Simulated scan of single mutants.
Amino acid sequence: MNLTGPIDQEALQRKLADLRAEHRDLDDAITALAEQPSLNLIQIQRMKKRKLALKDQIAKIENLLIPDIIA
Rank of each mutant, 00 (worst) to 15 (best):
M1S: 15
N2K: 12
N2W: 06
N2F: 09
L3N: 14
L3D: 14
L3V: 10
G5R: 15
P6H: 06
P6C: 03
P6S: 09
D8A: 11
D8V: 07
D8N: 15
E10M: 09
A11W: 04
A11C: 04
L12T: 00
L12E: 13
Q13A: 10
Q13I: 11
Q13W: 04
R14G: 05
R14Q: 12
R14H: 10
R14V: 15
R14K: 13
R14T: 15
K15Y: 01
K15H: 06
L16E: 04
A17R: 06
D18H: 04
D18F: 00
D18Y: 00
L19S: 02
R20Y: 01
R20S: 08
A21Q: 15
A21T: 15
E22M: 10
E22V: 04
H23T: 01
H23Y: 13
H23C: 05
R24P: 00
R24L: 09
D25C: 00
D25L: 01
L26C: 10
L26D: 05
D27Y: 04
D28Y: 04
I30H: 01
T31D: 15
T31I: 02
A32N: 11
A32R: 12
A32K: 12
A32D: 14
A32P: 07
A32H: 12
L33M: 14
L33Q: 07
L33C: 04
L33G: 02
A34L: 06
E35P: 00
P37L: 10
P37D: 15
S38P: 05
S38T: 12
S38K: 09
L39D: 06
N40W: 02
L41R: 12
I42S: 15
I42C: 07
I42Y: 15
I44M: 06
Q45W: 05
Q45A: 13
R46T: 02
R46N: 10
R46L: 07
R46K: 08
R46F: 00
M47N: 04
M47W: 04
M47Y: 01
M47T: 02
K48F: 01
K48E: 05
K49N: 11
K49S: 12
R50K: 12
R50M: 03
R50E: 03
K51N: 06
K51H: 08
K51Q: 13
L52P: 00
L52N: 11
L52C: 01
L52A: 11
A53I: 02
L54M: 04
L54P: 00
Q57Y: 03
I58W: 01
A59Q: 13
L65S: 07
I66M: 09
I66H: 10
I66Q: 13
P67L: 05
I69N: 11
I69M: 08
I69C: 06
I70V: 09
I70N: 10
I70L: 09
A71K: 10
A71L: 09
A71G: 12
A71S: 10
